[in-house]
């Protein structure tokens, strides 16, 4: 298999996953804002470090237009547009899906018809709707549709792709992105809700904490596991350490490590990326939540996020993806 093929599948996994995460994030943020707690909404751009880009997208011209239309204060819809439909924002849903489709298109011979058609179908719907009249665009429905179809694309891959190297690169990209996303979301949001990083709150904003869980679709999962009221430390534990939660950092690193090992077996060699993946996986696997609070949650998550960045670089080097 060519390095360029590996690269395309790896990035297809990453972009698709990022689109899915962003769709969820937007839904959770919107819910939060609608439940009259709007001030948290803008924190969401900090998750992908897009504060500057967001500010720039709110150009003077746009501001004036909004003023003229008498909707000066409607920052929430601007935010949604930026995160979902702004083609100048490289992390937006539409940019991510465009990139994923480009990757898939170059590898049409290496993926199944089911995967290609479901991804292409999503792109056609998205781009078609965005070309239409934006004023009548049902943003909520489109975001929901992205979320659903992304699940279908991953599902198509799951049931139709040959379990070869290509499959492992797709998995690697998807789980690396997903684990990184969860770590970012937890870090940024926890820090905003509890700047001193304490594990328990005397009075707790139920809506803010359930929104944090909703970002990874785990509100009901939380209830199933803990069967008790929301508690910041348990939320952090669920999002980082529970291997049985499919979007937890630990689960994702477990899957990353597994894909790395399959690749190592196939190639008969191991490198620095394998070591880093194993190390990062072990860090989450053997951590205890109390210990993490001793270190400081923000510090710990900072280390994890750095770990993801280093691992990503090293994967690029080791498999000649760059």
């Amino acid at each position: 298999m060519l390095s360029s093929t590996a690269k395309n599948l790896y990035w297809m996994g990453r972009y698709l996953q990022r689109a899915k995460t962003t769709a969820r994030l937007i839904e959770a943020t919107q819910r939060m804002a609608l439940q009259s707690r709007g001030k948290e909404a803008e924190g969401v751009v900090a998750i992908f470090g897009m504060e500057d880009e967001f500010r720039q997208s709110q150009s003077q011209e746009g501001q004036n237009q909004r003023q003229a239309q008498g909707r000066g204060g409607r920052r929430l819809s601007d935010l949604v547009d930026f995160l979902a439909f702004d083609e100048n924002n490289p992390s937006s849903i539409v940019s991510s899906i465009r990139s994923a489709r480009r990757n898939a298109r170059e590898e049409r011979n290496n993926i199944t018809v089911d995967v290609w058609e479901s991804l292409n179908g999503l792109w056609l719907e998205l781009s078609g709707k965005l070309r239409g009249n934006r004023a009548t665009l049902d943003r909520g429905a489109l975001i929901e549709s992205v979320k659903k179809q992304a699940v279908m694309i991953f599902g198509a891959a799951q049931v139709t792709l040959l379990r070869d190297e290509a499959w492992n690169f797709l998995q690697l990209g998807a789980f690396l992105e997903r684990g990184d996303n969860t770590a970012r979301i937890l870090d940024v949001k926890y820090h905003r809700l509890m700047p001193d990083g304490s594990p328990h709150a005397e009075t707790l904003d139920y809506f803010a904490w359930s929104e944090l869980l909703a970002c990874i679709g785990a509100v009901r999962t939380y209830r199933r596991i803990y069967r008790s009221s929301l508690d910041p430390m348990k939320v952090a534990e669920l999002m980082m350490l529970r291997r049985d939660v499919p979007r937890s950092v630990h689960h994702c690193l477990w899957m990353v490590d597994a894909s790395m090992r399959e690749l190592a077996d196939a190639y008969g060699t191991r490198g620095e990326a394998d070591r880093l993946a194993g190390e990062l996986h072990a860090k989450l696997r053997y951590a205890r939540i109390e210990q993490i609070y001793d270190i400081g949650l923000h510090e710990f998550l900072g280390g994890v996020r750095d770990g993801f960045a280093t691992l990503s670089d090293e994967i690029g080097r080791q498999f000649l993806l760059d």
Binding site: A33, S36, F207
Partner: peptide, 15 residues
């Protein structure tokens, strides 16, 4: 409508 009015949330009922 929700952004124009401040409506008390109800989602904490099950909690």
């Amino acid at each position: 409508l929700f952004s124009a009015m401040r409506v008390m949330p109800v989602a904490n009922y099950t909690e």
